[in-house]
Write a protein that binds this DNA or RNA. Structure first.
Lengths: 197, 197
DNA sequence: TGTGGGCATTGAACTAGGACAAGAAATGGA
DNA sequence: TCCATTTCTTGTCCTAGTTCAATGCCCACA
């Protein structure tokens, strides 16, 4: 087992809970390493799979497509972060309403729902890790909801820059517009106005 | 111990995980029953307490106040639902950025963070329950974010009516406007237009 | 070395929803 | 019961952001 490979993800989950080497070993043995080319769709809307992916390298996006065909990005996944569908698989296995797609060539650790259940069974402390991850994610999403309702487009863009300083160099601008909930044309105008200082 | 009192909440947590009577007993012994008058603020912005409350009876709201003083409701808590702050208390005890306030006279079960930790220690399966609750909450919040960005005010209001048919009779209309992210005046106009069918 | 398809920019016309103000209706407290 | 306060409605004007269309750009690739 290549230790350096698992180092980042093990440090990630150890931020919240202390694990023994043995427990981390079980965790690591359930991870599947995947190299994925850019523009690969990992999860199609309507598919039942709710996997969890940890981004080692690269960049992904998770998005809805609304009835009239517009894409709406709900999350970017970059290095050292988790991305996955959170449909209510366990007690109500609905098909997913989101797409997950790579933006750059990416390296991921993925875990199937079944393997995740096995992980919970063998190392129950992981329930705690994923509870806390959920909780953080929820807090971030609530803040975004708040921002989306009560802040102007340029405020939102400035806050986005603070949170993801590297993304504007990495992803097409209209993805950022979609994430901020504004039209690409308007984002272009916002940027122009902000540059004039 | 009054069984009928605990019946609802026990049924609520048993939706996701099966518990023994003993485990439910431990859970129930850590709950604090509170009767709260309407318009009582249970959590002020800046306070450190992140409690979790289960609504037996009544109605609550959770809201931000933005820098220019406008309230923004992020959640209504009604019968048989959970409401609480989800700041990252454990690894990063930030003061809360939200208020939680009763709208009607309410009966609640509350649990302090310490008692919750004790619950997790004594009945680890509760990590799972709260993970799933978080997960559901996150899914709902993502849907709201999606709606807030890509749907019109009247669409949002109609969907709100479907989701909370009883709330318009129970809470002031401008709370609903705040929840939907539109001005109270505009909600009034939306309702008028919808009534003309 | 050209070329075609995504991207970004700009402008003009338009619209959903906001802000403000004033009045009407409902509610609640003593 | 009455008064005060909160809540709801309606109208007018205003603005942030949209939509559409045209133009130019950048590169990926044959």
């Amino acid at each position: 087992m290549d230790n350096t490979l698992y180092e980042t993800i093990n440090r990630n989950v150890s931020r919240y809970v202390r694990f023994t080497d043995e427990e981390l070993g079980i965790f690591n043995s359930l991870l599947k390493l995947q190299s994925v080319h850019k523009k690969t769709i990992l999860l199609h809307e309507g598919e039942k799979c709710n996997f969890e992916a940890f981004v080692i390298k690269g960049c992904l996006r998770k998005y809805y497509i609304d009835p009239d065909g517009t894409e709406l990005i709900i999350q970017f996944g970059v290095e050292d972060s988790w991305i996955g569908d959170i449909s209510f698989s366990i007690y109500d296995p609905k098909p997913s309403r989101v797409f997950i797609e790579t933006i750059e060539d990416s390296e991921l650790f993925t875990m199937s729902p079944d393997d995740k259940e096995e992980l919970y069974r063998r190392v129950p402390k992981f329930e705690r890790v994923f509870r806390i991850l959920m909780q953080r994610n929820l807090a971030v999403t609530q803040d975004r909801l708040f921002a989306s309702i009560s802040k102007s487009a340029s405020q939102k863009y400035l806050e986005f820059l603070e949170q993801y300083p590297s993304l504007p160099q990495r992803v097409p601008q209209h993805y950022i517009a979609s994430y901020l909930g504004i039209s690409p044309e308007f984002l272009s105008k916002v940027r122009k106005k902000l540059a004039h200082r």
